[in-house]
Simulated scan of single mutants.
Amino acid sequence: MHALTRRRNRWLVVAAAAGMCALTPGTAMAGWGPGGQSNGDTAETGGGRSGSDLVSMVRYSGSSTGGSGGGKGNVTPVGDWNPPACWYEPRTAADFQKYVEDMYTETVNTPGQHSYAKTAVGQFRETYKDGEYKNYNLDEADKGTWWVAVQDPDRWMEPAAQLCNESPFWVVNGDTPDVPNAVTPNVLAELAYNRLRLPETEVTLAPENTTKVNLPTWAWLDGATFKAVDVTAQINVGGLNIQATTTARPISLKLEPGTKDAETYPASGECGINDDGSIGEAYARGKADETPSCGIKYLRSSGKGKFALRATVTWEITWTGTGNPEPAQLPNGTFGADQEVVVQEIQSVNR
Rank of each mutant, 00 (worst) to 15 (best):
T210A: 11
T210Y: 00
T211K: 01
T211P: 04
K212D: 12
K212G: 01
L215S: 15
P216F: 02
T217R: 05
T217F: 02
W218H: 06
W218Q: 12
W218G: 11
W218P: 01
A219H: 10
L221P: 08
D222F: 04
D222W: 01
A224N: 14
A224I: 09
F226V: 07
K227H: 13
K227T: 15
V229E: 03
T232G: 04
T232L: 03
N236F: 01
N236W: 03
N236V: 06
N236E: 07
V237E: 02
G239K: 03
G239T: 13
N241C: 06
A244R: 03
A244K: 01
T245H: 04
T245L: 00
T246M: 04
T246P: 00
T247W: 01
A248T: 13
P250N: 11
P250L: 05
P250V: 12
L253H: 14
K254M: 05
E256P: 01
K260L: 10
K260M: 04
D261L: 11
D261G: 13
D261I: 03
E263L: 11
E263M: 07
T264M: 04
Y265C: 09
Y265I: 10
P266N: 14
P266V: 13
S268M: 08
S268D: 15
G269N: 12
G269T: 08
C271M: 11
G272Y: 00
N274P: 03
N274H: 07
D275R: 12
D275Q: 12
G277T: 08
G277A: 10
I279N: 07
E281P: 03
E281T: 15
E281K: 09
Y283I: 11
R285H: 10
D289Y: 03
D289L: 15
E290K: 13
S293H: 04
G295L: 07
Y298G: 04
Y298A: 09
R300V: 14
R300N: 14
R300Q: 14
S302L: 09
G303L: 06
K304D: 15
K304T: 11
K304I: 08
F307H: 09
A308N: 12
